[in-house]
Design a protein around this nucleic acid. Structure first.
Lengths: 208, 208
DNA sequence: CCATTCATGTAATCGGTTACATGATTCT
DNA sequence: AGAATCATGTAACCGATTACATGAATGG
């Protein structure tokens, strides 16, 4: 009665396949770099580790430390490797996308343009910033590993792929945010120039 | 103090701000077009409508039909408009990204390249297909509305922004999938070429 | 002294999916 | 007769977040 392994379990296996680690270590790694595309709190990680161990995919060893509390260091087993390998290329459907900012954009015709411009510029900045972090990380990796980054059977290849995805998606998102803000700015500038009040915004604004 | 309005509630308000509708109508609209960036089943929609009504943001009217079961047609209230408007430009943090395919890519160094290529080509196809659907929808909208699409206080402007986001993100995702598959193919070709000295060595170059 | 880091757990809650449940009407 | 669409609800479950809980050691 192991309780089926879920996505978080494979995320943890993916980390332990690179290096043995404690629950606390894994928590740190689930913030960065894995946290860029999958997140988990410690309250989810510790029970999941117990489940993975019950399923025989990992084992642990108690390690005493002089100046720190003792810790459980988990290692992946042969069965764990096998489970991870078969999961990686298993068929999976398209992820259901949930994006609150796009949902807001859908109702943006109701909003105050000035506030909307501020919101979208701010998000553009955030996504640009995240992209910069990813790019810096990739550059450091390229300096450290060079062409070894392209060796498809080495762990750093996985990091490389994920970072590329992060850079691309953040760039795309930032560009869209800026494009939205540009459109709003253009339209409000038009209105000032034209001196022509565009159509009323239904009851919500016509009521005043 | 009834249950606070959550994101789904604003999604429904965003639809009702365009047109009054029954729960069933809203369910259809939560599949497309809103389902491209926010999903919900009827089991979530009906209770949420009750909550919105209890909060005074919508009202309903029973409508009898000759050849169909009777339905409740919901309409947005003044308070609903106000709530929606204030939500649209309210500050919101970056969404926590959860992408299982990227998570798998992180462990792709362990996988069989042939299976991995198949997986990523398949996802590339799916994202290309979705992008085509969005592009066709946008074209139809452009034919129907023309430059009215750029009027920032009309409902179709919201559709336009969301479709643009869909097209961009699906293009980016598809390109990344193809780039991953290209890299894997290049690397496996390299390995074959090593056995046949006449073979051409393909360099793994960064895409995008 | 108090905040932070290291280190590990459980409990309560919540948003969302899946399953259960009912019933009318139309089309094949 | 049976499937599909229209139409509306509740209940069970599950993954994930937030809160509760403990305790040692370091640094300011």
């Amino acid at each position: 009665m192991d309780g089926k392994i879920q996505t978080l379990g494979y995320a943890l296996l993916g980390l332990l396949a690179r290096e043995s680690a404690s629950g606390y270590d894994l928590l740190r790694q689930m913030q960065a770099p894995v946290g860029y595309f999958w997140q988990a709190q410690h309250s989810q990680i510790y029970p999941e580790l117990a489940r993975l161990e019950a399923a025989g995919l990992i084992t642990h060893e108690r390690v005493e430390q002089q100046e720190r509390p003792a810790k459980k260091v988990y290692s992946i087993t042969e069965a764990g490797y096998a489970a991870l390998q078969s999961w990686v290329t298993r068929n999976v459907g398209l992820p259901a996308k949930r994006d609150e900012l796009t949902l807001r954009a859908y109702s943006l015709w109701l909003a105050d343009p000035v506030q909307a411009i501020a919101l979208f510029r701010e998000h553009a900045r955030s996504h640009h910033a995240l992209r910069s972090i990813y790019e810096a990380k990739l550059e450091r990796m390229q300096q450290e590993w060079g062409t070894a980054l392209y060796q498809i059977n080495h762990p750093q290849f996985g990091c490389f792929l994920a970072l590329r995805r992060g850079i691309g998606s953040e760039r795309e998102y930032a560009e869209w945010c800026d494009w939205v803000a540009d459109m709003l700015e253009g339209a409000t500038a038009d209105r000032l120039a034209d001196d022509e009040p565009a159509g009323e915004r239904r009851e919500a604004t016509s009521g005043g």
